[in-house]
């Protein structure tokens, strides 16, 4: 489950970076938003993706862009949601 989730998130990040004409190379710990690589408004895409793909309810738990700033951060969110351990 976790490796599948990680791959889906990576794939989505790749897609968004391509749409932004940004460098498509990234590591799982690379900052996507705080570094300025992606627009803060484009977080919308990630919020919708995480809501629909993993059932994360940001309204209930609050939202902060650092929660989705990297693949690892998003994996932690997904792990909290599914109750599994976040892989490193």
């Amino acid at each position: 489950m976790t490796s599948d989730a990680r791959e889906r998130i990576r794939s989505f990040v790749r897609e968004q970076l391509a749409l932004a004409n940004a460098d498509k190379k990234f590591n799982d710990s690379d900052s996507l938003f705080v570094s300025g690589r992606l627009d803060s408004v484009s977080t919308v895409q990630f919020v919708v993706f995480l809501e629909t793909e993993f059932g994360i309810d940001f309204a209930a738990q609050g939202f902060d862009v650092t929660q989705i700033d990297s693949v690892n951060a998003m994996m932690s969110l997904v792990a909290q949601q599914t109750g599994s351990t976040a892989p490193t």
Binding site: Q16, L17, A20, A22, S35, G36, R37, V41, S42
Partner: peptide
């Protein structure tokens, strides 16, 4: 897609 360009818009990232 053209909303997603803050890296280029700030000249700090590789984008």
């Amino acid at each position: 897609s053209d909303l997603r360009n803050v890296a280029s818009a700030n000249g700090v990232g590789p984008a």
